[in-house]
Amino acid sequence: MSAVDAVRNTSAPEPGVLRAGVLAVLVHVSFIALMVFGLNWKAQPPEGMVVELWQDLPQPAEPQEVPEPSPQPPVKEQPEPEKEQPEPVLEPVKESVEQQPVPESISVAPSPPKKPDIPLKQEKEKPEPPETVKEIKPDPEDLQKQAQERIAAEKQAKEKAEAERIQREKEAEQEAQRKREQEAKAKREAQQAAARARVMNEVAKYKAMILAKIRSRIVMPPDLPGNPVTEFNVTLLPGGDILNVSLRRSSGYAAFDSAVERAIYLSKPLPLPPDPVLFNEFRNLNVTVHYLE
């Protein structure tokens, strides 16, 4: 009996089974919450910075200082090389269009109607006194003659005025035409100058970039006296590959020369403008490197 009791005793319920389960779940929930909210999972990779290294500013730096080229003197002003390019071209066109109608309206349109108006009135006013005279002296033949003369004179005057007006109109038109042509010519010249400037700008920019790239790769030999200068002739292939590098003028220090030559080869491919037309400017490149900046 007691042995049975003892055996039964071993089947006593285990304490805290449910509590243990709840605690286990709690541990996991809190751990997951910690992982999800506590840890700062990187949501964005650090953005790479693109830095363009310039040894010195490209030559035509002046137009860049003026952010918006004022369009009034399009001939003198060098337009912005890249994005602003359409603006200086377009705006002079607009202006010239606006300006053109103004001289036309002054010289052509108002003057012809005005002038005939005045002589017509005078002629109209003139014949009236004879009419009053007519009534005093009723001579039918004279009257008829006078009337005919008057009509003829009137006609003549009218024709004359008409001719004059046409002449004037023609002159005005010619004047306007000349003006327009002049303006168009100026505009074209301005555009050409701008394009040339743009090309030069682009070329200078890329030349500066090439030089900067080469300079960045030079391992300068230390402690050279003075500021030696070395010059290289670099023959380029389209795409920026280097075909040939030849020493044009040595600096007198072989270490410096060879350092620059190595740097030129190392900076292959050289930056070239995307416009293939400009490549001719770069086919034979003259690279001059000063030891000191």
Binding site: E14, G16, V17, R19, A20, L23, A24, V25, V27, H28
Partner: peptide, 18 residues
């Protein structure tokens, strides 16, 4: 692993109490 972990923690607490 989640199930195993849950189960092991459950046993850990049970054994602790026992």
């Amino acid at each position: 692993l989640l199930l195993v972990s849950l189960l092991s923690w459950w046993f850990i607490f049970r054994k602790l109490f026992v």
